[in-house]
Structures are given as C-alpha cells and as structure tokens.
Design a protein around this nucleic acid. Sequence first.
DNA 1: AGAACTGTAACCCATTGCGTTACGGATTAC
DNA 2: GTAATCCGTAACGCAATGGGTTACAGTTCT
Lengths: 94, 94
Amino acid sequence: MRMHNPPHPGEIIKRLCLDPLGVSVTEAAQALGVSRKTLSAILNGRAGISPEMAVRLSMAFGTSAESWLNHQTQYDLWHAEQRRKQLRVSKLAV
Amino acid sequence: MRMHNPPHPGEIIKRLCLDPLGVSVTEAAQALGVSRKTLSAILNGRAGISPEMAVRLSMAFGTSAESWLNHQTQYDLWHAEQRRKQLRVSKLAV
DNA sequence: AGAACTGTAACCCATTGCGTTACGGATTAC
DNA sequence: GTAATCCGTAACGCAATGGGTTACAGTTCT
C-alpha cells in the first residue's frame, strides 16, 4: 500500500500534456470534445477520469487509455484504503 | 486493445472466491458487510466493483484490492473502447 | 411441506460525470 | 485605460450508478 497521497490524475494531464504543448485549457477542452468546465474540474481534482475520458485523452495525446484509467484507479484506491479501518468485514479465507 | 469481451469482475469473484470456498452469496454478502442485493448485482454484472468494494474483497479474501479494481478498469475500458469511433476528438500531439 | 438460497423488481437516497450559463479575477494586447 | 482572453467556479439540470430495504417467485435440499 502506497504511503503518500498520489497526485490526482488532473495534475498529470496538465504536467505531461498541456504544459509541454503549450495548450490552453480552453483549446484542450475543445479538442477533447468536452466542455471547458469538465476539463477544468479534472485538472483541479474535482472530478475523476471516466473511461470515456480516458479514451478521449488517448486520442488527443496519442497515449494509452489504459494508463490514464490506471492513474485514476490508483488515486481512487489510495483514498479507499484510507478508510479501510472503518469497514467491518469478516475474513472468509486465509 | 483487447479483442474479446473480458468477463465482468463478478464472474471472477464467483469463480475464484465463492465457488472454491463453497460460500453462498448470502454468507459472502454478510461477511463483506454489504446487502445481498449489492453482491448479487456485482456477481451478475449489473454493477461494478467500487473502490470501497475492492477493499472489502481484499479484506475478506486476503487478496489485493488493486487487482480487483484493475479487473474492473479493464472491463470498463473495453466497453469504452467499443465506442471510440463515436467520439469526435482532434489530435493535439503526435 | 418447510427451510434456505438466489435473482430481481420497486422504491429511496447520495454521489458523480457532463452540459450550459454566468460571474469575477487575472493577464495580455491595443 | 479599455478590451479581449483565459481560467476557476458557482448554480442549475439531467442521467447513470452504488447501496439499502422490502418483497415476491423460483430452486433445491431436508
């Protein structure tokens, strides 16, 4: 289990895609075919990357959709793990 | 991109966890701390594995939460990829 | 027959992804 | 100094989804 809070995938999109290309949020949103608000929410960690958005990212930036979704999974999982102790679950197997 | 429709994670839970242990859906739901309906929906592919459920599964079956979430990610991604052609996205990078 | 297990429909609730519209702040251009 | 951009974000609405409870029908086992 990861010790440190992983960055939300939005930071990664900004650092690895938008910044290097010098693309504005507005331009990127138009290219992705989503509203500026939707992309902004992702970039600022107020929304996650949906499966469809992962495919859009792969199409616009020539990356793998899987990697984006994995970033999101790792992020979600870390937060879920933080609440592990609050879950009352009995063991069914060793 | 995977060619064949991957099984929904519910099938995997049933085949790898419930069946080998001879645990009923009712028993497993109680152990997991969720309603029978919730587990049934997952097992029959009418619901996905949420991050919290992945942690529950890892607690009950001694498996890794990450693997369960990855199964779900692969499943979701495959279905999103099926609609890739319907997405109008412009390329921003080579 | 009776008990246990299962799938599932009908509701309710909270969350979340996405859209549009609109506003205020910051930055840049003229 | 004024106008144009760009950006974050609040306020709505809509649809989907995870989860709970209750309830009914169909199996299977005792």
